[in-house]
């Protein structure tokens, strides 16, 4: 019972502490997900390594690309008007995460590393072609988010590696979600669409198995700019057909399919300048 809580000040120290505790160390980067596991004793680490003192907080624009430190609390992105203006889909998705109190704690890196299948951030980051910078004792490496996410709650991180930053190119984008309760609930599905250039649409869906992913079949049918009604409907139907939806206590497969169809069409209308 009980664990040791440590808060290293350098990445090297963090790697060392994680390696020493191999197999019995958990990473704390906000803790809004980890604390559930600790409370239910589904995880019983002997050591918890907090990243709060690592020099990775903050976010900045590098040209048209947003670089977010992995320990940046979501609320810092939420309150930055430039994020809302240049990455509207990401901004909506961030506001969909938990409650405001929770977003003061939750971090972008924590959300990615936990890789929850119902995450509101993964679909929009997939649609925006985000890349992940991974730091480890041997140096850093970069990886597309799509390759980083292996399965539900499984990523390409090799302990003691940590996410250092996330890079998100700016693009017109939209995120739409469905829940039983609008505020502070887990999304049944989330639909993210990015529109980075003429006639280019990238669609990603969350709330599917095994983890959020892009839907190339639906994207492939979108050839016009803006896509006319029948093209939008075909893409929406293809998305609803293509994505592997589960049935669980939050929603049936049938409901998820119906909602994804509606939300993809709405998202495309929104990006074409209509109301979502």
């Amino acid at each position: 019972m009980g664990f040791e809580l440590v808060a290293p000040r350098s990445p090297e120290e963090a790697f060392r502490l994680l390696e020493e505790g191999a197999g019995a160390a958990s990473v704390l980067a906000g803790g809004t997900d980890l604390l559930f596991d600790l409370d239910r004793v589904t995880t019983a680490p002997r050591r918890v390594v907090s990243l709060r003192h690592l020099p990775w907080r903050g976010h900045a624009w590098q040209g048209d690309t947003l670089v977010v430190g992995s320990t940046e609390p979501l609320y810092e992105l939420e309150r930055d008007g430039s994020v809302a203006a240049r990455l509207p889909g990401l901004h909506t998705a961030i506001r969909a995460v938990g409650s405001r109190a929770l977003r003061h704690r939750a971090t972008l890196g924590g959300n990615l590393a936990r890789a929850a299948p119902a995450s509101d951030l993964l679909p929009i980051l997939l649609a925006l072609d985000a890349t992940v910078e991974i730091a480890g004792p041997a140096g850093t490496r970069r990886m597309e988010l799509d390759r980083f996410l292996l399965a539900s709650r499984t990523t390409a991180l090799r302990p003691p590696e940590l996410i250092r930053s996330v890079t998100v190119p700016a693009a017109p984008s939209v995120y739409l979600w469905q829940r039983v309760r609008p505020a502070n609930d887990i999304s049944q599905v989330g639909v993210a669409i990015a529109h980075p250039g003429p006639a280019v649409y990238r669609i990603a869906v969350g709330g599917i198995v095994p983890r959020p992913r892009r839907l190339p079949g639906a994207e492939a049918g979108l050839l016009s700019d803006p896509p006319p009604g029948p093209e939008r409907v075909r893409a929406a139907e293809e998305a609803a057909r293509e994505a592997p939806f589960p049935s669980d206590r939050r929603a049936t497969e049938e409901h998820r399919r119906r909602v994804v169809r509606a939300l993809v069409e709405r998202g495309l209308v929104h990006l074409a300048g209509g109301a979502a």
Binding site: F36, S99, V180, R181, P182, A183, N184, I186, R249, R250
Partner: peptide, 24 residues
């Protein structure tokens, strides 16, 4: 409240037992 066929309460917490928030 959602009970399974084995009599287990499947949503014993505020995550899946949804009381209204001020926003609703």
């Amino acid at each position: 409240m959602l009970w399974g066929p084995d009599g287990r309460l499947e949503n014993p917490g505020l995550l899946d037992y949804r009381v209204p928030t001020l926003l609703e």
